[in-house]
């Protein structure tokens, strides 16, 4: 187990400072509210889904939290825009397993792109929820979970 990986890289800091797609969505077809009580992270993810094509046309979010959760959500929105719902679920699975240390994108084929930046979080099990909150909330939105998501 190595401690010296750079978790807080420039990309993460940049997305924390200037989150992408950081706004409410007026004509969202799906949305979900997610909280991570540990850090007090609190986000809402909005989706515009073309049901006929099964494509996520637009993704945005609002909320506040630690740098990891904010950057993770920002990068997620950027990554998923225009992807098919099925693809989104594949990325969710890979991401979720990666932060838990059960999937190694250095050794396996993946669809994570830049999201591999969050691999270092597996060294901090107490903080994996910061990185995965956005994704759980996304799935909550796709599944139309009205009660919201809590990582606890």
């Amino acid at each position: 187990m190595s401690y010296d990986n750079e978790l807080y890289q420039q990309v993460i800091l940049d997305h924390n400072r200037k989150p992408r797609n950081f706004h409410e969505m007026e004509n969202a077809t799906h949305s979900c509210h997610g909280i991570n009580p540990l850090c007090g992270d609190d986000i809402t993810v909005y989706l515009k889904v073309d049901e006929d094509e099964g494509v996520v046309e637009d993704v945005s979010f609002t909320g506040s939290g630690c740098a990891i959760s904010k950057a993770s959500t920002s990068l997620m929105t950027h990554h998923l825009k225009g992807k098919k719902i099925d693809e989104c679920r594949v990325v969710f699975n890979e991401f979720h397993k990666m932060v838990l240390g059960e999937f190694d994108p250095e050794k396996q084929d993946h669809h994570l792109g830049k999201l591999t930046l969050f691999q270092g979080i597996r060294e901090y099990p107490s903080r994996t929820k910061c990185a995965s909150l956005a994704w759980h909330t996304l799935v909550g939105a796709l599944d139309k979970k009205t009660e919201g998501i809590s990582t606890e």
Partner: peptide, 13 residues
């Protein structure tokens, strides 16, 4: 400027 949990993780590094 920084969330306490980010501070803790960065200090740990």
């Amino acid at each position: 400027s920084a969330h306490p949990h980010d501070i803790i993780t960065m200090l740990d590094q």
